[in-house]
């Protein structure tokens, strides 16, 4: 049998999901079940709610998430470079500084347009 360390990962995940699900089910079955209408309402400071979470949300969340993707990809490339730092020498440093420089222009653009200012 060819050994792969991902067997460990699979076993760990299945075991953990099993245990935590067991705890959840235990909690559901061990507690009393006394239902009344007030408990079923959404907890919103006592104001009768229309039972939907619809509200106007800021578009900044979307922007934060997109910018996170872009910088996350950059971080991944930086990890690849950092692993081979000694091998790639000065040439590698110049390459990566060029890469970071272009993204730094993007970062300065974010700061300048105040795209991430949470004033609301």
């Amino acid at each position: 049998m060819i050994y792969s360390p991902y067997y460990n990962v699979l076993v760990v995940f299945i075991a953990l999901i099993g245990i935590i699900t067991l705890i959840s089910l235990l909690a559901i079955f061990l507690g009393p079940k006394k239902e009344n209408q007030a408990k079923k309402e959404a907890y919103e400071c006592g104001i009768p709610s229309p039972h939907t979470a619809q509200q106007k949300l800021s578009v900044k969340f979307y922007l934060v998430a997109i910018l996170f993707i872009l910088f996350d990809i950059e971080v991944i490339f930086l990890y690849l470079w950092a692993l081979n730092f000694q091998e790639l020498g000065w040439f590698g440093i110049i390459e990566i500084f060029l890469f970071l420089g272009i993204l730094l222009v993007g970062y300065l653009y974010i700061l300048q347009t105040k795209a991430l200012d949470w004033e609301s």
Partner: peptide, 16 residues
């Protein structure tokens, strides 16, 4: 690889 940085920059500007 260097072109990817331009791609990311374009995506950034477009998103903003």
């Amino acid at each position: 690889f260097e072109l990817i940085s331009f791609l990311l920059l374009t995506a950034l500007v477009a998103a903003i």
